[in-house]
Design a protein around this nucleic acid. Sequence first.
DNA 1: TATGACCTTCGAGCGCACTCCAAGCAAGCG
DNA 2: CGCTTGCTTGGAGTGCGCTCGAAGGTCATA
Lengths: 158, 158
Amino acid sequence: MLQTTPLTTEEDNPADVCSAPPPGHPRPDGQDSYTISEVVAFTGLTAHTLRWYERIGLMAHVDRSHTGQRRYSNRDLDWLDLVGKLRLTGMPVADMVRYAELVREGENTFGERRELLEQTRRDVRARIAELQDTLAVLDRKITFYSDATQAYEAERTR
Amino acid sequence: MLQTTPLTTEEDNPADVCSAPPPGHPRPDGQDSYTISEVVAFTGLTAHTLRWYERIGLMAHVDRSHTGQRRYSNRDLDWLDLVGKLRLTGMPVADMVRYAELVREGENTFGERRELLEQTRRDVRARIAELQDTLAVLDRKITFYSDATQAYEAERTR
DNA sequence: TATGACCTTCGAGCGCACTCCAAGCAAGCG
DNA sequence: CGCTTGCTTGGAGTGCGCTCGAAGGTCATA
């Protein structure tokens, strides 16, 4: 399979979607062509932001209709999905642009891409640990306030 | 115990530190008074930021030495700990200021404080879930790149 | 035909969370 | 004595990630 379409499955499209399973967004029609307003509805991003993503190179050039209007493909939506996820991790846009560039450069950047993703993974894991730490603090404080409020009520109604 | 120091343990200090167990920072001396540069070293925040926190009401007024220099207490450090954790959750500074105000207002704001913390807890949990989602995507992609690179190597050296 | 949705480029503006500067002064230390 | 470190208020600047507007055009639908 890698021989029939040899290793280039990623580069043939700008979306870098490797075996992406269930797409996160509803994809109402079975088509592969969406207007910008449809994408706005799917992603929650604004049209301005979508155009801006394209401008700064965070998205490869999106297909146009014969009249020059943007027609987003399912691959584009998958890519936006990934971008959305990376955004949640706090990854700077510049880094995502870098990744997008690597995708455009071809399969010889697989190693670098992997490194970038592995670094990101470390960051995400660290962040999760921090958040769980915070969660523990919140739990403690919430318990404190619950107890204190109860004690106060007991005191008041004694 | 709540009767002897009745419910006011929180309000007597600006730190709102309820049963805060091990402090996150090193507290080198057994003292309760630190200069701004010591706090900078402990927290990683800049002196500018520390003064700014005070200015915007994110910290209660910090004690001053007889000459007017800031002297941070352990309570202040605990509060900064909490602020740091809340900051990690992405909570806006304005919300933290609101919480600080509630602390200053007294024990009749226990309910509101708990609500705020519970909302934050929900946010944090949601965020952790998102991050774990992202982690799964990263894992998949990293595996893909590892496999692809291996296949490429195998191909190359056959 | 008219309305509304979309297109283009490009630069300005915004909100957030700092970050720094000015300008002048005081304390502590070698 | 000079150096460092700190103090004060208030305002300006920075970097990020959008966010919006101008100005003029095309296209699809009622």
